[in-house]
Amino acid sequence: MPETIDLTILETLDFDDDGFMTDANDWTPAIGKAIAAALELELTERHWDVINFSRAEFAEHGDAPSLRKITKVGGVPTKELYVLFPGGPAKLAAQIAGLPKPTGCI
């Protein structure tokens, strides 16, 4: 049985109208887990690879990485990204990682 995750942790946080956290600094892995659970997504180690890479990129550049960067630098192939985050990997990965909506076109 999948572990039950407490979603009330999300109630104390601020989200913009698109469902992205307004302050990336408030994020913790537990919050990431809760956001994923709200999206009905169970996080695997590969998900965490993407999330941690996105967090690191954000810390360095102040922007959520483009999907191309996640594949090229982060080392997660395009095909796998779409399996990990069905229904829009760029948005979902940033959302779970507590980052603002990605602005890159690729």
Binding site: L7, L10, E11, D18, G19, I35, G87, K91
Partner: peptide, 19 residues
């Protein structure tokens, strides 16, 4: 459902139901 959860979920596009 709380506002926060609705906001987060609003982003998700379920590929099975998306038109």
């Amino acid at each position: 459902m709380s506002d926060v959860l609705a906001k987060i979920k609003g982003m998700k596009v379920d590929e099975k139901t998306t038109t």
